[in-house]
């Protein structure tokens, strides 16, 4: 009895700690007052201003575009890595392959961002491309560090996947390619979708790497938000937070739905 009370208290306090800041943010987004901290009354004023703020809307569109594209590329390449690591025995310099596909997970974003920027500058010096940085360079950088996250999900999925199904199909006359497209990929499809959603969110949320690799005409949403709140508070960002938190949490729930589907 006593221990179950401790247990409920710990869980309650833990969840309170995790959700309290988010609730505070949503609460203040309905504050009429321009001074964020002084409550003046309930209002949707800042939501209205938010939807009329061209800078934020434009940044939002750019971010969604980059996130969708880089998630797609990262998913394709990440599935290939996950598949290779679990199913393909002969990978030249396998340790190096593992190094390349797992280091982006642990490398601090700042170092990754700096290395990408210096790479693009050097590349431009050598072959004259990319002449300026922008959406393309952010896209390339995001693909590079999202691949690892997708790969790890696919790798986990394929490891506990019953190989007998693939072998049975092979015995029935399917060749490798056919087994892959007709059996393996459809079975791991939920994990592929989960991987895409994760990559999409990571790209949408990234500030550091995007700050290094951005250029004219490529202010992503986090860059704009950061410039607004670095030194103070912004009522428009409060409104944006509430919407964005809500949207991202829905994406998160979808991720769980897909990622769990196979775990009977």
């Amino acid at each position: 009895m006593k221990s179950s009370l401790i247990k409920s208290t710990v869980i309650f306090l833990g969840l309170f700690f995790l959700y309290f800041p988010i609730l505070v943010l949503i609460f203040y987004s309905f504050n009429e007052n321009k001074r964020v901290m002084v409550w003046k009354g309930f209002s949707l004023r800042w939501y209205n201003e938010l939807f009329n703020n061209e800078q934020i809307i434009e940044a939002f569109i750019i971010s969604i575009k980059i996130a969708a594209l880089s998630a797609t590329f990262a998913t394709i390449l990440g599935v290939m890595i996950g598949y290779s690591l679990v199913r393909i025995r002969k990978i030249p310099f396998k340790s190096f392959y593992i190094f390349l596909s797992s280091t982006p997970l642990v490398l601090p974003e700042l170092i990754l961002g700096l290395s990408m920027l210096l790479f693009f500058i050097s590349l431009n010096n050598v072959i004259g491309f990319p002449s300026s940085r922008g959406q393309l360079t952010i896209f390339i950088s995001h693909v590079t560090f999202c691949i690892a996250f997708v790969a790890i999900i696919i790798q986990a999925r394929l490891t506990d996947f019953n190989k007998n199904i693939e072998e049975a199909a092979m015995d029935l006359g399917y060749n490798y390619t056919k087994v892959l497209y007709k059996i393996t990929l459809p079975i791991i499809l939920p994990s592929i979708i989960a991987g895409w959603l994760l990559a999409f969110t990571i790209s949408l949320d990234d500030l550091v790497v995007a700050s290094f690799t951005t250029g004219p005409g490529a202010n992503t949403l986090p860059i704009v938000v950061f410039s607004k709140v670095r030194l103070g508070l912004s009522p428009e960002v409060n409104a944006l937070s509430a919407i964005l938190m809500f949207a991202l949490i829905i994406i998160g729930l979808f991720y769980f739905y897909f990622n769990k589907k196979f775990k009977h």
């Binding site: 949408l204 949320d205 500030l207 986090p222 960002v237 944006l240 938190m245 949490i249 998160g252």
Partner: peptide, 8 residues
Amino acid sequence: PFWSSFLL
């Protein structure tokens, strides 16, 4: 909460 924006 980890899925909602880090910056926010």
